[in-house]
Amino acid sequence: MKVLPVTSVQVADTEEFIYQPPAKATNASRILVKPNLGYPVAPPVTVSINILKKVLQGLRQVSPNGEILIVEGVCSPVSLEEIAHRHGLYGILDEGMQLLDADKLPMSEYPNLSPSPVRYKSMFAPTMLQEVDCCITVGAFKKTNLKGKELISASLKNLYGLFPRSRYKARSSHSRGQLHRPSVPLILQDVYFSIGYLFAGAVVDGDLRFVSDDWRPDKGKTFPFGKIFFGDDILAVDRRACELAKETVPDYLDTIENLRQLSNI
């Protein structure tokens, strides 16, 4: 297995974090930012507005005239607009930034480029992903537990919010239950090879760590961590966050990395 070098990921103490965007963001006309803001709950269930502000500031410095689109799809009965208001998101946006509800955007079918798809040969996500110059995912660092198995959620799992609930809902219309079958770690393979590879940058907000005793990603315990992870590769960023948090690196990262070596991505 190819192991990505630690130098591919930057780690900063929360107070000293200054975002350095990927090269694709420089002088970009349009940048898409996918933050983890799907719940009306404070960090670490969601990303810190202060960290998101620093990400947006970093992007604005390298793309002073670019359009920055903050795109999220909620996992709650509460609307995205109300969640954004509660978190104070509107207060950090400049005139060239706007918030968009992923569920309300035009969708396109993205082929699954994995050499071995798990469930989906293609997946539907906002057309906008292929209409921008650069995509950035900004995830929170969370651990949940389902049937005795731990699940680490960071910058890759954050992409679940981009998939339309109308197509991927199960019992609840507020979530994307179909993306939990047969399991999240398995479906994350399809997610990466459908849209994950399109993301040129990843940030994991590890100022606080979230740990749940069960499957619920919005109810659990909070622990101080004080680290922010960022880089150009989703897999490497998530891996480094797990290593420094002394969490077991999830198998899905190894599996995706092995498959990526076999693909043309």
Rank of each mutant, 00 (worst) to 15 (best):
M97W: 11
I195V: 14
V78I: 13
H85V: 03
T46M: 01
Y192A: 05
S76P: 02
D232V: 04
G96K: 13
N112C: 13
P44M: 09
R167F: 10
Y168V: 11
L259Q: 07
R60E: 02
Y110D: 14
Y120Q: 09
P185S: 14
S122Y: 15
F193G: 10
A28R: 09
L93D: 04
D233T: 04
S76K: 04
A236S: 13
Q10D: 11
S116V: 11
K121M: 15
Y252S: 01
V211C: 07
D218V: 06
P164W: 10
R165A: 01
F124W: 09
R240M: 15
L56C: 06
L159Y: 10
K157C: 03
L162H: 10
K157W: 04
L93M: 14
S116D: 15
N65L: 11
E109N: 14
D207E: 12
L253E: 07
S63D: 05
L188R: 11
D207C: 03
Y252H: 12
D213E: 10
Q189F: 01
Y252C: 03
S175I: 01
G196W: 01
K246V: 02
L186A: 11
P250C: 14
P250W: 12
S48Y: 00
G231E: 00
F124M: 13
D233G: 01
L151V: 11
Q20W: 03
R216T: 09
M1P: 06
D133H: 15
P185A: 10
Q178N: 08
E95V: 07
G58D: 02
D238G: 12
F229C: 07
S263C: 11
Y168F: 13
I265L: 15
G38S: 09
E15C: 02
V118S: 12
D213Q: 11
A245W: 10
I136T: 03
I68E: 11
